[in-house]
Nucleic acid binder design. Structure first.
Lengths: 203, 203, 203, 203
DNA sequence: AATGAATGAGATTTCATTCAT
DNA sequence: GATGAATGAAATCTCATTCAT
């Protein structure tokens, strides 16, 4: 019985959470109303306040989930072997996340680009800086191993790679909603992005 | 006297427009209220409706302005000489715009990443695709001139470059508002981005 | 306890409805504001939207109520015995309604005379045509029974009777608000209207 | 030149007036905005205030015009010959007005049924009572001439006739906007109304 | 006689949130 | 845990009217 209850508890909480992530991701924080969320989740309004306190805290929960999800994936990547392998895995890890959890990208992007618009919370900076840090650190190690050409700024590389991947993923999402000229779309952009960056970096 | 009148007219319209661009850019469409705008502009609410019709049309006006501004800058770049020079100018044109008109970036990014959230208008797709197209076309010409290594997908390059520059500019904006770890910031990212891409592409 | 709750629910909904019917009837749809209604009903504004959706749907609810009320009364009249009796009951049914529910008349009249001004709903035509139809059908039956003089157009009779009764009722309402010359008022107009019409029709 | 100016003056004033009558008639006082009127008239907003003072006075002007128009037509009818002829002319006079100036009916009806909704003005009562008075007076004269059956209340007759004609005219207007069942419409209702009333009254 | 621009007040509607049960 | 009902505050937008020229 208590298991059943716990199960039910998770049902409602989980349904709210799922709906919230999707809606925040697609419409942004302000365009998403509590009613949108509860309608999608099939629950009543006060349940949001019961489980999450208020809209702001619900949003922060969503962002943290995305963050943790990405962190977990990135943590699994061994940065120590070769930069070639690292970057392949990095790209496929982010790509996988965007595939399995497409809202993640949008949520992060919303968040990154409009910090003023969103509720603040302590770990906020990390969400932005962690993925960049990973690339930077892997690059540093590779430098020490002598794999890397001279003259590459590590942080810029992290930022540029992150930005390139994000833009490619965003565009494939956007093109579902906005008419993008046919001849602008790229097939398998991740593969090409990997090639561009590796060529530039590796000796 | 008539100049004064015209001046006054432009004062009100212009003040609304200026305030709107800044606010939409920093807070997004939904988080920005008409009251925010008129308070910032120092005018009365109905003036927004008098000059722009409604909130949506005001937003579209802002987006169009950004679009035209970017297009003008990109149009001036001669794509025909060398890809090296082209990309330098492309980067400095976008960078300049982000410097002189920092809201442009945010507005575009808001818009690109949340097409569902924002009012649509016909030229919407172009805002996204035009900058990418410019890079692609310049790259094609350079290929014909034999400047370019084999195996580069033109569209992906446009996307990746656009994304890298945008993320770098965003981060420098974001870091004004969110505590980003000091050691993640890159100095003069545009210069490094240029290097990364050129190295990868040029023979 | 549950009765109390149900009671309260009906209190608010009912109070809004009652106030709305009165105000729509006396001032018309556009001159009546939601604030008028909630002030009269002693409830808060959002309750209107909670229970009725919006102003238009509230109005439609009111009109439907009037329609149903009149239909119920007309349905009880047996059209089959004699036209004399039918018309007496028809007149007293409408008169009774205007007495017990004086707003009904005004609401119908508002509605009938300004179809463009008011929100449409599917049964709109019926409100206008049903009472006329009843008279027409009763007249047809009476014709078959040989009660009726030749040369009477059935539909016109329905319209004329409806119009005459409505104008009489309206005037007695209007004279409460506008100074009508004393010598124009008729005492017991329904009785006289009945006489006028029966004399004209019956053999 | 002054004639030309006067002509122009009348142009603007007249255009406003014409537009106002049509709009007030079709949409009612409150649903009609000054903008509606000036848009339809092709003039600017302040012109309304220049020529008519304000919305209320503009409306009163419209009502008075309708009133005068009807009065003129009714005045021409000689009430003294036979009631048969009088009623024929009365019906054709009102019918003609509704044909030539269809807004007149709606304006009067709006006004009659919702005195609370509209601006008051001194002659207001007359607009309602005058047509009824005419019928009553003609009936009295006819009584003295011995044309009329006993037992007819003069005021009620005026009211009933007025109401019947008005409802018939309204319905033919309404049926342009609301789907009225085909079999409810009457052809040439005025002729039949005349018959109904005369049969009832004349010896 | 005419206009473009401006405004205060108020209209409808929505939102995040809470209360009583 | 869960709900229907309720609310204060604020959002977008419109309206009749006036000012300066």
């Amino acid at each position: 019985m208590s298991a059943q209850r716990a199960g039910k508890r998770d049902d409602v909480r989980g349904a709210i959470f799922k709906a919230a992530v999707e809606l925040f991701a697609h419409k942004g924080y302000f365009a998403t109303t509590i009613r949108d969320i509860v309608d999608k989740a099939g629950v009543t309004q006060p349940m949001v306040y019961y489980y999450f306190g208020n809209k702001e805290q619900l949003f922060v929960s969503c962002i943290k989930e995305v963050h943790n999800n990405l962190e977990e994936r990135l943590e699994e990547i061994d940065a120590g072997k070769s930069f070639d392998k690292f970057i392949g895995r990095y790209i496929s890890a982010t790509g996988k996340m965007y595939n399995e959890f497409p809202e993640a990208l949008l949520l992060m992007v919303h968040f990154i680009h409009s910090p003023e618009e969103y509720p603040r919370f302590p770990e906020m900076g990390k969400i932005i800086s962690n993925p960049i840090k990973r690339v930077r650190d892997a690059l540093r190690k590779a430098k020490r191993r002598g794999e890397i050409k001279a003259g590459i700024d590590e942080n810029t590389l992290g930022i540029a790679l992150f930005g390139a991947l994000e833009m490619a993923a965003s565009l494939s999402h956007v093109s579902k909603h906005v008419k993008i000229p046919h001849d602008i779309k790229s097939k398998d952009p991740d593969k090409h992005i990997k090639k561009i960056f590796l060529r530039s970096i590796l000796k």
